[in-house]
Design a protein around this nucleic acid. Structure first.
Length: 467
DNA sequence: GAGCGCTTACT
DNA sequence: GTAAGCGCT
């Protein structure tokens, strides 16, 4: 008998370890480890609890059960393995430094007890090290990575294990509540978790919105995105299942433009894999700049500006709408994530780590690979060597991507009755005009033009080009 | 076959 | 500005 340790693979089907032929029967287990929970936050834990309930139900209808444990993973898994006479424990390979260190401790502890461990690469279509430059190095530029990733053969999804492969549970265990785990209720409404919900998301998206993804993905008011990100982060859907369904959508595409749109979405799956590879080969990026500068970047220390950003009260409507969406839904449209990240680092001149930490606490889909990759891209400390210094103009971005200001008005009620042209020109109004239009919405807390120059100077100094 | 200069493109 | 490919040595 083998234990399967579920972590970010909260699904029964398209789960490689559950169908690998090396065990006659499998007993599934999930562990709430305080060392890992230290880095978690209410939105993600709430999503996990929801997903665990669905997964446990799947096992229970097959006369097995998901064992839920609390405590340090090495100790708990060794104890359960001994109690159930399991001779092995399997899990899906982790790619973050924290996850790999934890898994090393588990592997050592189990080896001491004479228990085998099996790890499988399950989270990515192409594991780290399998897509490299012609010299064999990991890529630091996405576009070259994409060219190789795009054309490489992908594995197909696998079925769920048959009931005959599942072991009887020795005891019934309870799923804890958020309060049991020491978390407050999230302030946001958390999207439903679970493998069924993930399937719905995937099928909804691939039946319709995927064909206009190219044109509509950057319009947050339309939101023609997949909403799959929490499911991919927590593994309520398998990546092979997603890719198979996307390829089917491409085959069923009505025309070339629709086929292109599907390919654009496939590019987003490649970004996810690219950033996982980057994190795997550079685990320190969660706290350090990927790109070295000659001197430290002299980020400002401005707690009030940081607080205004977190609360969505910067006086830049598109930024504030995004930050309010985050608090309300534990989610933010991806285009707006780029805008608020650029604003934090290039307008408020605050360290990307502050933004990354807030996202880590608030996003239901946070994972260190994608989130860190996105933050360091916005902060100009990451991969991609850019020919120009990237600074988003928050007004232009708002006008271009939310022209009717529908997204802004949805999330910023103070601007509810205000015309789009007034909203997009908010920075140009006099105090009296602003009071007149929306008395409860703040004036811009910084001047974008001034801060743009200050950002350029800050990075010139870091490069050692100015004093 | 590594080491170079040249070219190309960077969401 | 710089990573990566390419062709040449």
């Amino acid at each position: 008998m083998r234990l399967h340790w579920h972590r970010t693979d909260l699904r029964p089907s398209d789960n490689l370890a559950l169908v690998s032929p090396d065990a006659d029967s499998i007993l599934p287990v999930y562990v709430f480890d305080p060392r890992i929970l230290d880095h978690a936050a209410p939105p993600r834990v709430a999503f996990v609890l929801d997903s665990l309930a669905a997964l446990r139900e799947w096992y229970r209808t097959r006369e097995s059960d998901l064992i839920i444990l609390r405590g340090e993973a090495p100790t708990e898994l060794a104890r359960l393995a001994e109690a159930t006479d399991a001779d092995a424990v399997s899990w899906a390979q982790a790619y973050s430094g924290l996850g790999r260190r934890r898994d090393d401790r588990v592997r050592d502890r189990l080896a001491d007890a004479g228990i085998e461990t099996h790890t499988v690469h399950d989270h990515l279509l192409h594991e780290p090290g399998s897509i490299t430059t012609n010299d064999g190095d990991p890529y630091a530029v996405y576009s070259y990575f994409w060219k190789k990733w795009r054309d490489r053969e992908k594995a197909s999804s696998v079925a769920a294990p048959g009931a005959d492969r599942l072991a009887d549970a020795p005891e019934e265990t309870a799923i804890p509540t958020l309060a049991d785990l020491g978390f407050d209720d999230p302030e946001a409404t958390i999207p439903a978790g679970g493998y069924m919900e993930a399937r719905h998301c995937l099928n909804d998206f691939c039946g319709d919105d995927i064909y206009r993804y190219e044109d509509a993905r950057d319009a947050p008011a339309t939101d023609a995105t997949s909403r799959l990100s929490p499911h991919l982060t927590h593994g309520t859907v398998g990546i092979r299942t997603v890719h198979d369904r996307v390829v089917r959508a491409r085959e069923e595409a009505p025309d070339d433009a629709a086929r292109e749109a599907v390919e654009t979405f496939r590019g987003e799956l490649a970004w996810r894999e690219f950033y996982h590879h980057v994190l795997y080969f550079n685990p320190e990026v969660v706290t350090e700049n990927y790109r070295g500068y000659e001197h430290d970047i002299e980020w400002r220390d401005d707690p009030e500006a940081l607080q205004a950003w977190k609360e969505g009260k910067t006086g830049y409507p598109i930024v504030d709408a995004g930050m309010r969406q985050l608090r309300r839904e534990a989610y933010m449209h991806n285009r707006v994530r780029m805008i608020v990240a650029s604003f934090l680092t290039k307008d408020l001149l605050l360290d990307w780590r502050e933004g990354y930490d807030w996202f880590r606490r608030k996003l239901v889909d946070h994972n260190p690979a994608n989130d860190n990759g996105g933050w360091q891209w916005a902060a100009s400390t990451g991969t991609d060597s850019q020919p120009y210094f990237r600074i988003f103009n928050p007004m232009t971005q708002g006008e271009r991507h939310d022209p009717d200001a529908d997204y802004i008005r949805e999330y910023v009620p103070e601007l509810g009755g205000v015309d789009a042209d007034v909203i997009h020109g908010w920075h140009e109004l006099s105090d009296a005009e602003r009071r007149d239009a929306a008395p409860d919405y703040p004036a811009p807390i910084v001047d974008h033009g001034e801060r743009r120059e200050a950002a350029l100077t800050m990075f010139e100094r870091a490069r050692g080009e100015a004093d």
